[in-house]
């Protein structure tokens, strides 16, 4: 099987790796680079647990190919906090109990972050529709909606 040498940026750091043609970005992150914060719930693009941001676009990393990441900039949950300072979304997810088991959380955080970049003041409905690609089986989503709203308010300085 062909091996590809890929140069890219992950959470601001230059990274290079070798991967097989068949490996998804999710496989590369988890298995080659040991960035296991990004989770696999389905590997078919249906759960959002693997959500990452590639060149500013929210993607399911299980559907993106590792070999296609040359020159790209990838952001994962591991890069969300700055040092010991949690991102407001991370803090409000904890505070509002927007996570229980937490397996969906990295994906939801990435998706929520992208939402707030596009829309700093989303309504409940906008939040629910934007996050409809991220499954959570524990929370019933209430507290996730609350956390995103609270983080949005803080980030707007409201």
């Amino acid at each position: 099987m062909a091996r590809h040498h890929v140069n890219c940026t992950i959470n601001g750091d230059h990274v290079d790796y070798l991967c097989d043609t068949s490996q998804s970005l999710l496989d590369v992150l988890r298995d080659e680079l040991e960035l296991t914060g990004t989770k696999e719930g389905c590997a078919t693009g249906d759960c959002g647990a693997c959500s990452v941001i590639v060149d500013g676009v929210l993607v399911c990393s299980c559907l993106a190919m590792g070999a296609e990441m040359n020159g790209k900039s990838i952001e994962t949950v591991e890069g969300m906090a700055s040092g010991n300072e949690l991102h407001p979304l991370q803090r409000h997810f904890i505070d509002k109990i927007a996570l229980q088991c937490g397996i969906c959380t990295p994906g939801l955080l990435m998706a929520s972050r992208k939402l707030l970049e596009r829309n700093p003041d989303p309504s409940e409905e906008e939040i629910r529709f934007w996050l409809a690609g991220n499954l959570c089986r524990c929370t019933g989503y209430n507290n996730i909606v609350d956390a995103v709203k609270a983080a949005a308010a803080e980030m707007r300085g409201a």
Partner: peptide
């Protein structure tokens, strides 16, 4: 449990 879960450090 929550901080490690929001930073991706929690180990499943």
């Amino acid at each position: 449990d929550a901080i490690d879960k929001v930073t991706g450090r929690a180990r499943y």
